[in-house]
Nucleic acid binder design. Sequence first.
DNA 1: TTATAGGTTTACGTTTACGTTAAGGTTAAC
DNA 2: GTTAACCTTAACGTAAACGTAAACCTATAA
Lengths: 128, 128
Amino acid sequence: MVRYSISELAREFDITTRTIRFYEDRGLLSPARRGQTRVYSPEDRVRLKLILRGKRLGLSLDESREIIDMYDPAGSNVEQLQALLKSIEAKRQQLQQQQQDILSMLDELDKAAARTHVALETNLSAKD
Amino acid sequence: MVRYSISELAREFDITTRTIRFYEDRGLLSPARRGQTRVYSPEDRVRLKLILRGKRLGLSLDESREIIDMYDPAGSNVEQLQALLKSIEAKRQQLQQQQQDILSMLDELDKAAARTHVALETNLSAKD
DNA sequence: TTATAGGTTTACGTTTACGTTAAGGTTAAC
DNA sequence: GTTAACCTTAACGTAAACGTAAACCTATAA
């Protein structure tokens, strides 16, 4: 039965314990307790990973929570399920927009790098 | 000679004029003036577009400015050019990480959608 | 000539996502 | 038995990215 301490997780993901407690405060994590001390399961660790991935994509904590909550359709009633499908679709669109943005930006970085190489060689051969 | 007013740009990109002025304040835009009034060129408009694309990718305004500044290697000296190449490479790596993150997330959204469809059909056939 | 539809600066307010003490409780090693 | 390395809650501070409101100028259409 694998368990983690808060500082173990903080070290692994290079964040502070304050950050982890803050995520709990915002309802993104709810670790077990041994006495007063927080004890994290592998599932808690996965949730943390998902939060951090969301952060890398520029998601707010609320958005990350929404996505994590999409994982189980436990909000069983039909309307909720249909709403869930809608927000899944919306997220997908947003991610596809991001993909496009990344491709454009990568393309422009390539060109910028090329120009910079040219400028470098010019400067070097000119030995100014 | 195409020019834009601040509210034209605000309408086009669905942001407020306050936002556009804020970007200027942070050094990301520097439109011309006609009297006291701001007048935006097509180049200004492109810069604004790039800022907003950065936003969609979760970049801070400072990061967006850095990327926009990569477009011309006017910081001509050799050390600066080498530093520029380094940061271009760093950005590229970050964008590739984001690509990976997006692919994973899209994959998980697919699965979530599938589970939701199943739950929906179950609920519908059960007519609860 | 007076609305009204734009533009301006200035400045305080707000949300998000933590950072940073402070003050204290518990266990393991020396 | 005290030092060190953990853990806890509580609370104030802060940077980023604007929102919001006040107070003002200015051109033009009715």
